[in-house]
Computed example of a mutant assay.
Amino acid sequence: MVRAGLTAAKVTAAAADMADEAGLDKVTVSALARRLGVKDASLYSHVKNLRDLRVRIGLLGSEEMTDRIGAAVAGRAGKDALVAFADAYRQYALDHPGRYAATQMRFEPEEVAGSAGFRRSVELTYGMLRAYDLAEPDLTDAGRLLRSTFHGYIHLELGGGFGHSRDVGESWARSLDALHQVLENWPSRHEPSRHEPSRHEPSRHEPSRHDGSK
C-alpha cells in the first residue's frame, strides 16, 4: 500500500535531499524507500524507475537554480549580469551538489519537453549574452564556453581539486573578469581562427568538403 501523504513531488524532494547529502550516485529506489520508511513497491506508484527518479531530481534542480539565477540577473546587463548569473550558478551548485549533478545529466528531448526550468535557463543565458552583441552561431559558442568554464571550476571546487592557498573565491572572481573580456572582444567570424588557414596561405592539409576532416 502507498504510504499516506506520499506524492511524486514529495518523493522527488526526498530524493533530491538524499542526493545533496550522500551524492547522486547513492540515490537508488531501494535506498530512498528505506529513507522514507516504505517498501520499494510504494515508490513505483510515483516513479517509473531509477532513471525517472534521477531525471526528476535534475528537473527540480534546474527549476530551482533557474529561479535563483533569474532573480540575481533581473535588471542587470553586461558584466553585472554575467557576474550575477555566474555567482548564482556557483552558489546553487555548492549549496545543492546532488541536485546540481543531476542537472548535468544527458537528457532525452521528451524528458525535458515540459520543463520550464530548462527552457528558461536557455532564455536567461542567451538574454545575458545578447548584451554583448552576439548572434548565432556565436551565442551558442559563447554559451558553451560559459557552461564548460562554470562546470569545470565547480566540479574541481566540490572535489577539493584546488590545493593552492589562493582563495578559490578570488580566483573565481578573476575568472569572471577574464570571461567578460573575452565576451567583449569576441573574435569576428570573418577572421580566420588559429585552427583555420588564411585564404592567402596554403593549407598543409588536403582540401575537404567536411571542414578538413577526412
Rank of each mutant, 00 (worst) to 15 (best):
L146R: 02
G163M: 12
G75P: 08
W172M: 07
H151C: 10
V112Y: 05
Y100R: 05
D17E: 12
G114E: 04
Q181F: 11
M1S: 14
A71N: 12
F162C: 05
A77K: 13
G58A: 08
A31V: 11
G23R: 10
T140S: 15
R189Q: 14
A101N: 02
G70P: 04
S175W: 04
A22P: 09
M105E: 09
S171E: 11
Y100H: 11
G160P: 09
T28H: 06
E136W: 14
P207T: 04
L156V: 12
R194N: 10
D87F: 00
K10T: 10
L124T: 01
R189H: 13
A116K: 08
M65W: 03
H195Q: 10
L53P: 04
E136F: 12
R174K: 14
D20R: 01
A16L: 05
E123G: 10
R147W: 01
R189P: 15
S121L: 04
S121K: 04
V11L: 07
P202C: 08
Y92C: 00
R166W: 15
A72D: 02
Y132L: 02
E206G: 13
F118M: 07
H155M: 10
I57Y: 01
A178T: 11
R56V: 04
T66F: 02
A13N: 03
S208M: 15
T125R: 06
M1W: 13
A19C: 13
D40H: 14
Y92L: 03
S165E: 15
S148C: 12
P197E: 06
V73N: 03
E108R: 07
